[in-house]
Design a protein around this nucleic acid. Structure first.
Lengths: 154, 154
DNA sequence: CGAAGTTGGTTGAAGTCTCAACCGTCGTCC
DNA sequence: GGACGACGGTTGAGACTTCAACCAACTTCG
């Protein structure tokens, strides 16, 4: 009921739980990555997007949009990953401003190597902790949040 | 049902929504802070913890634990906030290793100034987007996640 | 055509975070 | 009492992010 002012005690409590839960969850996930393959959580997510795109290729701007990253942050991140041989950049045909980012074979191998530990961590810290209904509700809820937040982007 | 291997399509979908939702949500929240008072989201949360503690004072280690921050990150953050006059550090009586962090009057004023926009953003991008049941479930779910992730801390 | 505005992406400096090493206390156990 | 290990916190260098300025290529429109 889109009230104003502060939150009720119950809302307050849910909100705090959300804050703490997400903080500790990403923390746990990041630790899981450090303990394994050399691919940070952010890099992993980037690779996943690429892996699902045709030709394992995406324009920088699309990548930035999908991952909700600033263009500049993406530029720097891809710089580092390119130096490590995980991706390559190529000019886009037809629009000389555009740049495509393509996953290399080495990148693919690393992604494959990193996946099991990643999935295991997601299960362990999120999926398996919740009932199927809770997890489904969580997904639906955050999907709505995503739409709203994205729409409000200046 | 603590399965192994990859996620089902439905789980996969929930997971992606969660990822995108949280990313865009914190992004929106941070933008809301930038557009207002000079207090980042992280600093705001730190101030909230202090504001609720007796004497508006907490030990560095407690603060770090509550906020799920590394000790070193907290040290740096408090350094900067102390320079701005928002908090002060004082030795703790009885344990010469300990350091207390106390919110100053100026810090309190800034927190009060920042609160309305913060709450409004939380409402706008999270609370009001969900049904009360969804929000409650979200809270319960993330509370469980928080407990699990915290427990797994090496 | 060509000026003005928009889009796609990069740059570099300043700000923030991480990681490992470190210092001074505290607690324990002999 | 005095090792020895754990605890609480800081340090500094390197890695990562942000922010604003920038460039080049498109687009729109007179």
């Amino acid at each position: 009921m889109t009230g104003t002012g502060w939150l009720t005690d119950e809302q307050q409590c849910s909100w705090r739980s959300y804050l703490e839960g997400t903080a500790r969850f990403v923390d746990a996930l990041e630790r899981a990555h450090d303990d394994g393959v050399p691919l940070s959580l952010g890099e992993y997510n980037l690779m996943v997007q690429l892996s699902e795109a045709p030709e394992r290729t995406l324009r920088m701007s699309e990548l930035a949009d999908f991952l909700a990253l600033s263009r500049s942050r993406l530029t720097h991140t891809v710089d580092r990953m390119e130096r490590r041989g995980l991706v390559v950049r190529r000019r886009v045909a037809g629009d000389r401003r555009g740049v495509n980012c393509t996953m290399t074979e080495a990148g693919w191998s690393l992604l494959v190597a990193a996946a099991p530990a990643h999935v295991a961590a997601v299960r362990r810290y999120l999926v398996d902790v919740l009932t199927p209904e809770e997890f489904a509700t969580l997904g639906r809820a955050m999907a709505k949040v995503a739409v709203t937040a994205k729409a409000s982007r200046a």
